[in-house]
Design a protein around this nucleic acid. Sequence first.
DNA 1: CCATAAAATGAGTGATTACTCACTCCTATC
DNA 2: GATAGGAGTGAGTAATCACTCATTTTATGG
Lengths: 223, 223
Amino acid sequence: MTERNDLWLQDLLRLAEEDGGGVKTEKQARILEAAIEIFAEKGYAAASTSEIASKAGVAEGTIFRHYKTKKDLLLSIAGPIAVKLAAPFLMRDFAKMLEQPHERVEDLFRTIAKDRFQFARQHMKLLRILIHEVPFQPELLTQVRELFENHVYRRMEKAILHFQAQGQLIDAPPWRVLRSAISLVVGMILTHLLLLPDESIDEDEEIDRTIDILMYGIAGRSE
Amino acid sequence: MTERNDLWLQDLLRLAEEDGGGVKTEKQARILEAAIEIFAEKGYAAASTSEIASKAGVAEGTIFRHYKTKKDLLLSIAGPIAVKLAAPFLMRDFAKMLEQPHERVEDLFRTIAKDRFQFARQHMKLLRILIHEVPFQPELLTQVRELFENHVYRRMEKAILHFQAQGQLIDAPPWRVLRSAISLVVGMILTHLLLLPDESIDEDEEIDRTIDILMYGIAGRSE
DNA sequence: CCATAAAATGAGTGATTACTCACTCCTATC
DNA sequence: GATAGGAGTGAGTAATCACTCATTTTATGG
């Protein structure tokens, strides 16, 4: 288990330093680009390697020089994006950020929400592929699971317990608090980037009001 | 547009009266059962008609006697489940329920949440197929879209405006209020039925606490 | 018990699939 | 300018795909 964690951290470091990791030749980059486009558009199973090759302007054999199998190509796309998605929770700064005693919890949620919204906008195609293929690729599923449990949840639970002790959060199980936060933020992001991508919104305003609802609910404030 | 709506309502009526609609022969039922199993397990594109036939204990040609194409088989599974999912919002009782002036809004949300949780538990395989294939099947997408916009959203917006006028709900755009409710409830349902199906919970308790958070948020109550 | 039709069959169809491999091309090193 | 090796190629392969159709089995009614 520790070995695998170390591998992921190495992946993360590689990703943080140089985007694209081991991509060297120009054709390889074109293959990745075309594969992302087609996987996102019609799904992994319905995408053919011949179509990817022709879209990339490359012979079909070239794909298999760089990626052993079609699934290998998928995993080299979906794996890294899962790590990137969780990246803020893996950084040292984040651990420190959680322990600043004076910070208000809603500012923390707001900061994370804005950061991940921006990330989702920049990598929506990749996230589509990840969301779509995680249920069918066991390797992906376990990677995402462990990433969430061992890094995201572990740290957020600590933060929630801390803010509960301060009286800033209700005395509910941390997982329910976290699930509520994730549900509202993910619901907002998916609505604006996937379901209604054409409706223009004031993004910051939308995030602020969503965090307001997370904190204080939808009940009338009159009383 | 009106014609299509009428078609859907007919579908709904058929579904409400007799489950399974036009299923007549026993073999046809076996085909549907096997197709649901395999579509849910490996996805539509990765499922082969030969595998479905063998699982159903039927010759491959028999499938195409009842369903013109493989996509036809998918749509005959995913279409009806979309209608069933929205069914409570299409019923007359529901319209009346929304207009009872004495009702508290959180009771309304609680009732809907419990009902749809039960529905989701009973039909999780079908919902998996629906969720997975909607992005790739334009017919499905438009059907789900119009179903939501013309029935679910239209009615819920009316209800929300009503409760806002009573001061029971915050003065936010109805779509944001509805999206928050859906996000929290769907997040809870997917968590317990898809992500962590093995963890046993007190379902009613879980729904009640989730609706509490929807109404009053996660902020501490101390002050 | 036969006649008729619907239901079911499964071998067969051409198209497409992921993947291989013998080969060419390009660049760098001495 | 000879050599080596990785990058790229594309025709070829066996397997599988969704779908067809001539034929057989089953069900129905007189």
